[in-house]
């Protein structure tokens, strides 16, 4: 195995850390998508002049989102410990890290999704209104599908950011690759551990970006593709 130059104990530690990172990233990513997409939709459709114009609500939600986004993640993690305890029953460990990760990343994805959905041509929304679509139908059948390439790109950015945020999870005992790198690579003077951790993170980010780009291309029908039939 490629980790052969590490001791078996370290190698198993590395695998554990990788698993912890994967769990933290994937669970909080799913939560962020589920919570962030509706939040992004809300930010778009409540804009003055849009299909569900509620200027006050729009400003309140927008300010709240900005508030979370301007709080440094490391501070957020400790600041919301009461909430974490309420939700998962503990303030330490991998599942405890998922709460602040989700809270921190949801507004980012919401903003990215909002930007993508804002780009949807007003003419398309108007066409949907002209055929008698409800605001909900316009969101589900027009805005989200038309913005999907941009939303998928937003998911990619969100995942990459999550990988970065998750490296700080050691602060609340969440473990993960970042924690391993700091504790062994830095505090115990084992640069080879640090190197392996960084290398794995690099590969992880590359894989996410590549897969995200492919997915975004697959759902994009805005540009004509060359077809075999022609």
């Amino acid at each position: 195995m490629f980790l052969g130059f590490l001791s078996p104990a370290l190698a198993s530690l590395l695998l554990d850390s990788l698993t912890q990172t994967a769990v933290m990233v994937s669970v909080s990513a799913v939560l962020a998508l589920v919570l962030g997409l509706p939040l992004g939709v809300l930010l778009v459709v409540t804009t003055p002049g849009h299909i569900f114009a509620r200027p006050l609500l729009n400003r309140v939600v927008g300010t709240f989102v900005n508030l979370i986004r301007s709080t440094p993640f490391i501070i957020m993690m400790v600041a919301i410990i009461p909430l974490t305890r309420l939700l998962v029953g503990t303030s330490v460990g991998t599942s405890a890290a998922i709460v602040p990760l989700t809270v921190a990343i949801t507004p980012l994805f919401a903003r990215l999704a909002e930007t993508a959905m804002r780009e949807v041509d007003r003419g398309l929304i108007e066409a949907a209104e002209a055929i008698g679509a409800t605001p909900f139908q316009i969101i589900v059948k027009v805005i989200i599908p038309e913005a999907l390439p941009g939303i998928v790109a937003g998911v990619t950015v969100t995942l990459v950011s999550l990988v970065g945020y998750s490296t700080m999870a050691g602060t609340v005992g969440g473990g993960g690759l970042g924690d391993l790198g700091i504790r062994y690579g830095y505090q115990r003077f084992m640069p080879e551990v640090m190197l392996v951790v960084v290398a794995i993170l690099v590969v992880l980010v590359q894989v996410i970006q590549l897969a995200g780009d492919r997915a975004a291309f697959a759902v994009n029908h805005r540009l004509a593709r060359r077809r075999n039939s022609r």
């Binding site: 003419g123 398309l124 108007e126 066409a127 209104e129 002209a130 055929i131 008698g132 599908p145």
Partner: peptide
Amino acid sequence: ELRSARRDIGMIFQHFNLLSSR
């Protein structure tokens, strides 16, 4: 009521306004 009335009025546009995703 307005939405159901709109179904009786078709509309076409200068820039077609077709969904690229469909």
